[in-house]
C-alpha cells in the first residue's frame, strides 16, 4: 500500500457570526492515495465546498480553521507561510472551484490566462516556450491550440470548463480538487469534460477529489465516496459498496432521492430540511429526518467507525 498523497486530520472549520459560531466542517479526517478518485457528496450547506477551500488553506474571514491538520505529500500545510502556500498551490494541489468557468477574465485571451498561472507560480519561460506550453496544455484538455487566441465569450461552456482544467493542471499537481466542475453543463458536454478530466488525471498520475451531488456521476467516476452531512463525514466506502449497500440512512435517502433513468416513478425526497449549522440537533444531526431514529440517536452523537469495507457514523449500522 502506498503512502497517501493527501491526509486530512480532524479538520474543523468555523465561521464567526454575530448570532453564534457556525461549524461548517466538523472533525473531518480522510486520506487520499496517489491516483485515487475520491467523491464528496451531500446537500447544499453540508460543508463540501468549505472543506475543499480549507484543504487549500483558502478560507477567508469570518471563516477560520479551528483545528486539525492537512498533510500534502508528507509536508504539513500549516507549517507553510503565505509564500510557501503559493508555491504549493497549483504545483502540488489545484482547485477547480465551483463556477470557475465564469471566473475567466472576460478581457484576456485564454492563452494569456493560462500563461499567467505559469508565471504567477514562478515559471519563467521564454515567449516561444511559453506559447508551446500553453498550446500543449490546451491540446491536453481536448481544445485546439488556436483557442489560446480566443476570449472567454467566444467559447462554449464546455470549452471554458476545459480551459479551467488546463489552468489547474498547468503545473502538474498531485492532487486536483474539482468542485462541481460540470454542474452548469449539458449532459453530453458533461460526459466529454469528465472523460477529459479522467484522462488528464491518469496521464499526470494525480489524485482527484470530486465534489458534487449527482450520485450517477459519482458512481461512474470515483473510486471511493464520502457522504457529508452538517459538516461531518457520515459514511465513507468504496463506490460500488456504497451504491449497492448504503449503510447510513442519510446515504440511502440521498441515493433514493436522485431521479434516475433506471427506475421510473420512484421519486422520494428526503423529508424535512437540512439543519441549520448554527443550531444543530442533539445527538446525530440527521435524527429529526431519519425514519429509524431511536433514543440513543437523540442523545449521543455517533462517530465515524470502521465497518467491513468502509466507515460509517450511525448507531444503527
Amino acid at each position: 500500500m502506498s503512502e497517501p498523497v493527501l491526509r486530512v486530520e480532524r479538520l474543523r472549520v468555523a465561521f464567526d457570526h454575530p448570532l453564534g459560531k457556525v461549524q461548517a466542517v466538523d472533525d473531518v479526517s480522510f486520506a487520499l492515495l496517489p491516483g485515487e478518485r475520491l467523491g464528496l457528496a451531500g446537500e447544499s450547506g453540508s460543508g463540501k465546498s468549505t472543506l475543499a477551500l480549507s484543504i487549500m488553506r483558502m478560507i477567508k474571514p469570518p471563516g477560520r480553521i479551528e483545528a486539525g491538520a492537512v498533510w500534502l505529500d508528507g509536508g504539513r500545510l500549516a507549517d507553510l507561510d503565505e509564500e510557501g502556500l503559493r508555491a504549493v498551490r497549483l504545483a502540488s494541489i489545484a482547485l477547480v472551484p465551483q463556477g470557475s468557468m465564469n471566473s475567466l477574465n472576460p478581457v484576456l485571451r485564454i492563452g494569456q490566462q493560462i500563461a499567467d498561472a505559469l508565471v504567477d507560480h514562478g515559471l519563467r519561460l521564454g515567449r516561444r516556450a511559453e506559447e508551446r506550453r500553453v498550446a500543449a496544455l490546451l491540446t491536453e484538455v481536448g481544445l485546439a491550440a488556436n483557442v489560446a487566441r480566443m476570449y472567454p465569450h467566444e467559447l462554449s461552456g464546455g470549452m471554458k470548463q476545459r480551459a479551467c482544467i488546463a489552468i489547474a493542471i498547468a503545473l502538474r499537481p498531485k492532487v486536483i480538487i474539482a468542485d462541481e466542475p460540470t454542474s452548469a453543463l449539458d449532459v453530453v458536454v458533461q460526459r466529454q469534460v469528465m472523460a477529459t478530466l479522467a484522462r488528464v488525471q491518469q496521464e499526470l498520475g494525480a489524485a482527484v477529489i470530486l465534489i458534487g451531488h449527482d450520485m450517477g456521476l459519482m458512481a461512474q467516476f470515483v473510486d471511493r465516496l464520502g457522504i457529508m452531512y452538517a459538516g461531518r463525514l457520515v459514511e465513507v466506502a468504496p463506490i460500488a459498496d456504497i451504491i449497492a449497500h448504503p449503510r447510513h440512512p442519510y446515504t440511502r435517502a440521498l441515493i433514493a432521492s436522485l431521479p434516475s433513468l433506471d427506475v421510473r416513478g420512484a421519486l422520494a425526497g428526503i423529508p424535512g430540511l437540512a439543519p441549520s449549522l448554527r443550531d444543530l440537533p442533539s445527538g446525530c444531526a440527521f435524527h429529526p429526518r431519519c425514519g429509524f431514529a431511536v433514543d440513543r440517536c437523540r442523545g449521543e452523537r455517533p462517530v465515524l467507525r470502521d465497518l467491513a469495507g468502509g466507515e460509517v457514523a450511525c448507531h444503527l449500522a
Partner: peptide, 16 residues
C-alpha cells in the same frame, strides 16, 4: 446520463 446502477463504462465510452 451517468447512471448509478450500471456498469462503469461511462467515462471510457464518453467520446471526447
Amino acid at each position: 446520463v451517468p447512471r448509478a446502477h450500471q456498469a462503469r463504462d461511462w467515462i471510457e465510452e464518453g467520446y471526447e
